[in-house]
Amino acid sequence: MTSLSTATPPDLSGRNLSKRRAFANRTATILIGLCVLIAALPLVLVVWEVLSRGSSAMGLDFLVEEIPRNYREAGPGMGPAILGTLTITGMAALIAIPIGVLGAVYLNEYGKNRPLAKFIRTMADVMTGVPSIVMGLFIYVSYVIVIGEKNGFGGALALACLMLPIVIRSAEEMLRLVPDELRQASAGLGARKWRTTMTVVLPTASSGITSGALLAVARAAGETAPIIVTVGLTYMFKPDLFYGENTTLAAQIYRNATQPFDASQERAWGAALTLIALVFLFTIVSRVISSRFAIDKR
């Protein structure tokens, strides 16, 4: 009879696993790791191809020159598309971000768990799943047909519709992180709710809201389908978004990729490089902001 205290402790090292169990565990781990490689591969492929093929077209003149009218004509030029992407996306951000942030204020500060707020929350989630081409068709029907021509502002409206639910949901997440003590302190000093919201809650959450908004902008900047439906496919940039067809980088990639000519394909790669750089820049800035100024780390 051995007493409890002298019994050998159970072997927890896993060295005595049956071969079958150890094998299953190792195979599963390897397969799970393989999944990560499968996802990383396309990213590497895309970035490599765009970098290697796009860099030959890249240069200062590529960024500023006009787009050649003839697909066969070699040489640089994506200036108008870059301006178009920046202005149309910028206009979309000007529309979507204020509405989105105010909507988030409603959901988190006023609506909370009311049925209406819950419904809006669900529908905002559903709205993020609406295909971008449907947003384009919507703006075509309700704006382009009404005013009688495709123009840059139509594209901005379509992109704003795409950004709105993303901004609302991410801003709401950030507002939820603001500690209630701040609201109570502000109320205790006699501030009204709207004052508390504008001067205490929103500034506290501003970095998170900015980061979410930038992500939405990055997604919108790469959209093509709503642009070709509402803005058209041309090679000219018009500073006046309310007048005439316009162009963006994404639209130029689509337009040039479908041509069989080397010159236009090279421009498509150059445009893709520019667009990816732009989108990644937005994403990285957004991540830096959110990790530097996160509320919970203060």
Partner: peptide, 9 residues
Amino acid sequence: TVPSVVFGL
């Protein structure tokens, strides 16, 4: 964040 048109290209 890679735009869908780039995947297409």
